[in-house]
Measured scan of single mutants.
Amino acid sequence: RVIAMPSVRKYAREKGVDIRLVQGTGKNGRVLKEDIDAWLA
């Protein structure tokens, strides 16, 4: 299970990103909004 705040999950869904593919850089591997942006870049 991916650790991410609900707002980040929603952001990823809106961008069409599968959050399971994104490498989290936050505490304990948490996926941050910046990680979604970096994955899209």
Rank of each mutant, 00 (worst) to 15 (best):
I36H: 00
A41T: 14
L40P: 04
I36V: 12
Y11W: 04
V31F: 01
V8R: 01
R1F: 04
Y11L: 04
R13H: 12
L40Y: 07
M5S: 10
D37G: 03
P6E: 09
G26F: 02
E34V: 12
L21H: 10
I36G: 00
V2Q: 09
V17F: 02
T25F: 04
A4T: 07
D35T: 01
E14T: 11
A4K: 04
S7T: 09
R13F: 11
G16C: 07
Q23R: 13
V17S: 01
L40G: 05
G26I: 02
G29S: 07
D37T: 06
P6G: 11
R20H: 13
E14L: 15
I19E: 02
V2W: 03
E34K: 15
R20L: 09
L21Q: 11
E34M: 14
G26V: 03
T25V: 03
L40E: 05
A38N: 14
R30M: 13
T25G: 05
K15W: 10
K10F: 09
R9I: 10
M5A: 14
V2T: 09
Q23L: 15
I19H: 02
I36M: 01
E34G: 13
E34F: 14
A12G: 04
V22I: 11
N28L: 14
A41S: 15
R20I: 08
D35Y: 00
E14H: 12
G16M: 11
K33T: 08
L32G: 06
A41F: 15
Y11T: 03
D35P: 00
M5F: 14
G24Y: 03
G16K: 09
N28S: 10
D37Y: 05
L32Q: 09
M5P: 10
G29K: 08
R9M: 13
V8L: 04
A12M: 01
D18W: 05
R9G: 03
S7K: 13
R30T: 10
P6I: 13
A4N: 05
I3R: 12
I19T: 03
D37E: 07
G26E: 02
G29R: 08
R20K: 14
A38R: 12
W39F: 13
K27Q: 11
R20V: 08
N28I: 05
A4R: 04
Y11K: 03
D18S: 06
G16V: 04
A4L: 04
L40Q: 05
R9W: 15
S7Q: 10
V31H: 02
M5K: 13
R30L: 11
G29W: 06
V2K: 09
P6Y: 07
W39L: 08
I3V: 11
I19G: 01
I36T: 00
G16P: 00
K15Q: 12
L40T: 07
L40S: 06
R13V: 11
K15N: 12
Q23N: 13
Y11C: 04
G16W: 06
A41P: 05
K27L: 14
K33P: 05
K10Q: 10
G24K: 03
V17H: 00
A12Q: 01
K33R: 12
L21V: 15
K10S: 07
K15I: 07
A4F: 02
R20A: 11
R9S: 05
A38W: 09
G16A: 06
V31S: 01
I3G: 06
I36Y: 00
V8F: 02
R1W: 03
R20P: 02
I3L: 07
G29D: 06
G26D: 03
R20M: 10
S7G: 11
E14Q: 12
V8G: 02
V31K: 04
K15A: 08
V17W: 01
E14I: 12
D18H: 05
Y11E: 03
K27D: 09
D35H: 02
D37I: 07
D18I: 06
A4E: 04
Q23P: 14
A41K: 11
R1Y: 04
D35S: 02
R1M: 10
E34D: 15
V8Q: 02
E14A: 15
K27I: 10
V17R: 01
V8D: 04
G26Q: 02
W39V: 07
L32D: 05
Q23K: 15
V31Q: 02
L21W: 11
L40D: 04
I36Q: 00
G24H: 04
L32M: 10
K10E: 09
G16R: 08
V2L: 08
T25I: 03
D35M: 01
W39S: 05
I19N: 00
V8M: 04
D35A: 01
V31W: 01
D18P: 11
R30N: 08
I3Y: 04
R13P: 00
I19M: 06
I19Y: 05
A12S: 06
L32E: 10
R1A: 11
D35I: 00
R20Q: 13
E14F: 14
L32I: 10
K33G: 04
Q23I: 15
I19F: 05
P6F: 06
G26M: 03
S7I: 08
A38T: 15
L21K: 13
N28Y: 14
R1T: 15
V22S: 01
L32F: 09
A12V: 01
K10T: 06
A4P: 04
K33V: 10
G24M: 03
V2R: 08
R9K: 13
Y11D: 02
G26W: 02
V8T: 07
G24E: 02
A12Y: 01
E34P: 08
R1I: 15
R1K: 14
Y11A: 03
K33W: 07
I19W: 09
E34H: 15
W39Q: 05
L21P: 02
K10L: 11
R9F: 15
L40I: 15
V17P: 00
R30G: 08
I36N: 00
R1L: 10
K27G: 09
S7M: 10
V31P: 03
K10I: 08
E34A: 14
P6T: 14
A38D: 12
E34W: 15
G26Y: 02
R1H: 14
D18L: 07
A12D: 01
T25A: 04
R13D: 07
D37V: 07
I3K: 11
R30S: 10
A12W: 02
R30W: 14
I19L: 10
G16T: 04
V31M: 03
G24W: 02
A4V: 07
V31D: 00
K33E: 06
D37N: 10
G29I: 02
R30P: 02
G24L: 02
R1G: 11
R20F: 12
D18N: 13
A12K: 00
K27N: 11
K10N: 08
V22G: 01
L32N: 07
R9V: 09
R1S: 11
R9L: 13
M5D: 09
L40R: 07
L21F: 14
A38S: 14
L21R: 11
L32Y: 10
S7A: 10
R20E: 10
V2H: 07
V17D: 00
A41Y: 15
G16L: 07
I36E: 00
Y11P: 01
V17Y: 01
K27H: 09
L32H: 08
T25H: 07
K33M: 12
I3S: 09
E34N: 12
D37P: 00
E34Q: 15
R9Q: 08
V17M: 04
L32K: 10
E34I: 15
W39I: 06
A12F: 01
A4I: 08
A41N: 13
L32V: 09
L40F: 08
K27P: 13
A41L: 14
Y11M: 04
I19S: 02
N28Q: 14
K33D: 04
V22P: 03
D35F: 00
Q23F: 15
M5E: 13
N28M: 12
G16S: 07
P6Q: 11
V31L: 06
W39K: 05
V8A: 05
Q23Y: 15
I3Q: 07
A38I: 13
Y11F: 04
T25S: 11
S7P: 06
L32W: 05
